[in-house]
Amino acid sequence: MDNFLLETLEIGLLYSTISLSIVFLFRVVGFPDLTPDGSFILGAAVSFYLSENGYSLILVYTGGMLSGMLAGTITAYVHKKLNVSKLLSGILVSLALYSISLRILGSSNKYYEDNQNVYGNILGSESISGLLILMVTALLFFIAVFFYLQTKQGLLIRALGDSEDSFKYRGISTLTLTIIGVSLGNGIASLSGAIISQYQGFVDISMGVGITIGALTAMVIGESILRPYNVFLLLASPILGSIIFQYILATSLEVGLVPTDLKAVISIMTILLLYLQFKSQKKNTSTRQIGNRSF
């Protein structure tokens, strides 16, 4: 593949999975969770460990996802039971996960000796099949979350995200729902970590640092374009946003901009998009956007 557009699409799709988990956590569950920084690397570490010890691919991915779900459960529990704020409990758990991942890996950088997994042969290959695999992956993530949110439990989680207070007024405990929501969100994040580490062929302990902020930026870019008023668009926006994010990044590189300046470019673009969104919302109050909008 020597095509700028297709290659950029490839990385955009790859990273859309982590953005999807951020939308799930921030918008659907209404939990500004920073655990994904940690669960991303945890998923990569656990799946690497399982893969190196010869477990089957299904176990590798389930193990990766379960590790993140466990992390999310702890975050939700710390918030609910120990009364630590949402942001802080996420930060604390992700800090711990950094150390735990380092233990699991044994050293800070490990590579896949025998990269015989689904994503191992995409980077650097000539064929278009890699792009198709990533499209299917992003689509599967999308479909799974989309249909989950139509189930009774999914609807309850959406209600929780929209208004936690309404649960409190009715005397319904939000503990179980929060745990389910946050753990699922982190499960997606850690599965994404597993996939991305297989794609790049190695796990580096620093790969999770700042991933939440990047994914959040992608989500904001997507939302400012799609203005999601239903679940379909809400879940489509991180995917679109991630692709556009990657497109801005790659274009800047392609025309010779210094990579160290990229962060400023993306930040300025995002602020502009948010400003536009704000202006049009003031003019047009009738299109209410879906999901928790408090952050």
Binding site: T8, L123, G214, Q246, V258, P259, T260, K263
Partner: peptide, 12 residues
Amino acid sequence: KNASKDIKTMLS
């Protein structure tokens, strides 16, 4: 080209 510690930028 310097990726400033970001693997995603490195991929690009």
